[in-house]
Simulated assay, not measured.
Amino acid sequence: MVVVTSVTTASMRPDPPRIEPCSSVDDSGRMSESLIVEPGEVMRMKTRLRGKGQITLPAEVRKYLHVREGDDIAFTLESGRVVLTGLTEVPTDQSWFWTEGWQQGEREVNEQIARGEGTVHGDGDEFLAALDER
């Protein structure tokens, strides 16, 4: 989520926030780079309003929102601010993954992995043999 405000002060320039780049693989198998802005950090940028009300989102904002050409962006007006949220379509045959129940299971697995729980199998045959032992 990116928050854009209409207040600008040119005289104050805060130190730039620490921004951590990270990489991930998108649905097409391509590496994509993301930005993580640490909690409490603020990243300020500007762009110019063009004819027909068009703006160009800076590359850093596109990375932060995980959007690319063709994606939708939602605008929410709240308390004198505009909040931008990147929207990505999920194919219907993959929507099960985003259900609350499945996501809860994903969170539980991530917590188990973080605690060092679980077994690593060298290959599929070892995995299937371990299932047969149960």
Rank of each mutant, 00 (worst) to 15 (best):
G122P: 01
H121K: 06
A114S: 06
Q112Y: 07
E117Q: 03
T99F: 12
G116S: 01
L128Y: 15
D123S: 08
T99C: 10
D125S: 13
D123G: 09
G101L: 08
T119F: 01
Q104V: 06
E108H: 13
G105D: 09
E106G: 06
V120N: 04
Q104A: 10
E126C: 04
G116L: 00
V109F: 09
Q104K: 12
E100L: 10
Q103N: 09
V109K: 05
A114W: 00
A129V: 11
A130W: 10
R107D: 08
G105P: 02
G105L: 13
H121I: 02
V120E: 05
I113P: 00
T119C: 03
A130I: 08
G118P: 01
W98V: 11
G116R: 00
V120G: 02
D125R: 13
Q104G: 07
R115Q: 07
W102G: 03
E126W: 07
L128P: 01
E108I: 10
E106C: 14
W102T: 14
E126T: 04
L128V: 10
W96A: 15
E111N: 09
A129P: 04
E117G: 00
V109Q: 05
W96V: 10
F127Y: 15
F127Q: 10
Q103R: 15
G116T: 00
Q112E: 06
W98Y: 14
Q104F: 05
R107V: 08
R115M: 06
L128K: 14
A129Q: 14
E111H: 13
I113G: 01
Q112W: 08
D125H: 08
E100S: 12
G122K: 02
E100N: 09
E117T: 00
D123N: 14
A130M: 12
R107N: 10
A114H: 01
E111L: 08
E111Q: 12
V120S: 03
N110L: 15
T119P: 00
E108W: 10
Q103P: 02
L128F: 13
R107E: 07
A129T: 15
G116Q: 00
Q103L: 15
